[in-house]
């Protein structure tokens, strides 16, 4: 403890210095002021587009749905958000079905991505909650069947052979698929039953015959790739993007639907030769959201970008839409926007 006289002396100087500081502060206050709008800078974020450089678009855009469409949607959104700093977008990768039932059909999200068309029970749920929507084609994917690069005994499969491998009453060994294949057990790696990829594979290849349960099911393409890369007698299927980005890691099989084997590529998928495994990917904007100008503008931008080869094919690994499809989608969208903003 210092002596009390000292304290007195210090007290006075401190009071003086405080006064000086306050004076300086007051001067500064007079110099630089800001006026606050009703929201304030920490406010709700929508509405005041101050400092956006004259860009009038602002507001949030919430997107959920398919993990397959997720990379494409985030790539498009990245560019859109860069052009319009007032936009506050969020994208969640929830799976097609999860997105519809948990978020979209209860009116929580503006868009839902899907790697298959919306299903009847989801339509019902949306209708019950009064959520209207339109369907837009985002891109085309080529479901790719892969084997180990060491497996030089196999280059292609017919659709029927593929079905015997994956149907619910599936064959055990490779030589049961085709006689000249080795007598080794088949190891299967595929999409989990929550995934749109699984639904599409059943619909296009297996039909009534059902999907085998004797396989390693996963939502992550990486796990399928690791599994197939680990064994010469393994087979797996997933979206084209993974194979496109890692072509040396795995071997893609040609699929023979009657006109000879066709290997998956951006070209064969877009000109329709790669059947039946090329599939459209969708996004579903809700009509109510399209009534907002910033959401409508993003939807227009998205449709415009679906033909952008660098982005869709180069960066993400899907097949861009044709000019014709784009024209159609654009028309559909404009009609919907007009109706929504009516």
């Amino acid at each position: 403890m210092a002596p009390s006289q000292n304290l007195e002396a210090e007290g006075i100087t401190r009071r003086r210095s405080l006064a000086a500081l306050a004076g300086a502060g007051a001067l500064a206050l007079a110099g630089c002021t800001q006026s606050s709008g009703d929201g304030g800078s920490g406010g709700d974020g929508s509405g005041d587009g101050s400092g956006d450089g004259g860009d009038s678009l602002s507001g949030s855009i919430n997107i959920a749905g398919s993990s397959t469409v997720f990379p494409l949607m985030s790539a498009v959104m990245e560019d859109f958000a860069e052009e319009h700093p007032g936009i506050d977008p969020t994208i969640s990768s929830t799976g097609s079905g999860g997105g519809f039932s948990n978020y979209f059909c209860v009116g929580e999200t503006d868009f839902n991505n899907a790697s298959r068309p919306i299903q009847p029970e989801e339509e019902q749920l949306c209708a019950d909650n009064g959520v209207e929507y339109i369907e837009l084609i985002a891109a085309t994917d080529a479901l790719t069947v892969v084997v180990n690069p060491e497996a030089d005994w196999i280059d292609s499969l017919t659709v029927e052979e593929l079905a015997t491998i994956w149907e619910s009453d599936a064959v055990e060994t490779w030589d049961e698929v085709r006689n000249e294949f080795p007598n080794e057990e088949i190891e299967r790696y595929g999409a989990a039953d929550t995934s749109g990829t699984y639904d599409y594979f059943i619909e296009s290849v297996l039909g009534e015959r059902g999907h085998t349960s004797d396989y390693q099911a996963t939502e992550q393409d990486n796990n399928i790739a690791t599994g197939v890369a680990g064994s010469e007698y393994a087979i797996g299927y997933f979206g084209f993007a993974y194979y496109f980005q890692n072509p040396d890691q795995l071997k893609a099989l040609g699929i023979d639907s009657g006109d000879g084997p066709v290997e998956p590529s951006l070209e064969t998928a877009s000109n329709g030769e790669y059947t039946p495994l090329s599939r459209p990917l969708f996004t579903y904007p809700s009509m109510e959201s399209l009534g907002n100008e910033h959401v409508a503008e993003f939807a227009r931008y998205f449709v415009e970008q679906t033909t952008n080869e660098d982005l869709v094919a180069g960066d993400v690994g899907y097949v861009p839409a044709t000019e014709e499809t784009q024209e159609e989608q654009s028309q559909k969208l404009e009609d919907a926007i007009e109706q929504a903003q009516g």
Binding site: G42, G43, D44, G45, S60, N62, S67, F70, P71, S74, M77, E78, A81, P85, D88, P89, T90, I91, S92, S93, E219, Q220, D221, N222, A241, Y242, F244, Q245, N246, G317
Partner: peptide
């Protein structure tokens, strides 16, 4: 999973580090 700008209020949507890292782990 992914947001492009930092949250501006307590009531804005956000992403957290583990979410974004997990999403990246699934990229091709």
């Amino acid at each position: 999973t992914t947001v492009f700008s930092a949250p501006t209020s307590l009531f804005s949507r956000f992403s957290a580090m583990p979410m974004q890292i997990y999403a990246w782990a699934g990229f091709p």
